[in-house]
Amino acid sequence: MSAIELKDLTYIYSKKTPFEKRALDDINLSVEEGTFLGIIGETGSGKSTLIQHLNGLIKVQNKKVSSVVVNGLSATEKKTLKQLRFEVGIVFQYPEYQLFEDTVKKDVAYGPKNMKLPQEEIDARVRRALEVVGLNYDEFAERSPFELSGGEKRRVAIAGVIAMQPKILVLDEPVAGLDPVGRSEILALIKQLQKDVSPTIIMVSHNMDDIAMLADRIIAMYDGKIELDGTPSEVFCNREKIKEIGLDLPLATRLRDKLVEKGINLPDGIVTPAQLEASLAAIKNGTAKDEVGGGDNV
């Protein structure tokens, strides 16, 4: 059974006013459990609307035609809405702006508390969530979230969502506005989360390098439609389409293309620096010795 099943999902904002906008246009999507799904697309392409359907934050507009089913729970079913919210954890953009409690511990406990778990379970989950995001419990638990650094605040906010131990974790631009060190730490954390907490992860990002590195599968959205769908290599091989829908190629792919222009024979489908390195190493160890020299100079 797939973890997420979207059928004929259409959503229109401000229907019948001059501001009318078709945010989702007949979306069909099925995501297997254990997938790391990357969603890319310009601002306003419908990514946020799509992810907010997954836990019923945005209600399905036309219940007769569209359906949203997550882990067997229908998002149109009112009775299981709460359960759905705990099944799908969403970390929104700039989640640190949603912190509100006077201590880190209480803030992280907000979700589990709403789940009506017993107090010992809440404490255990808060402790675990903080450790998972790399914040020492004894050091941070009693501090105010407002006095932490930007990166630390974001970790607390993420901990607040994963303390609910959602089976599906959705992250909207999780590294936006962070410094390079913060970025790579959070990205490493997300990879770890898939192993430890939530087997299925959906990440929305404008950064093609991050997405190419982390995702098993990528969908590219444009104007409310899914324009490309496949593995990172498949999606980013579609150079014209990527350009057409206002996106960029990952750095490694662009470098590979430049190297190919210079006459170095590299295979297509390179999307990460690691893949590029491996391909170059293969050439170096192989026969085409003169070409490798050129590669090293670039």
Binding site: K82, R85, N114, V161
Partner: peptide
């Protein structure tokens, strides 16, 4: 709206 969405996502009603 954003904050409400975020807190709802954490099970607030």
């Amino acid at each position: 709206n954003k904050i409400i969405a975020a807190q709802k996502a954490r099970g607030a009603s």
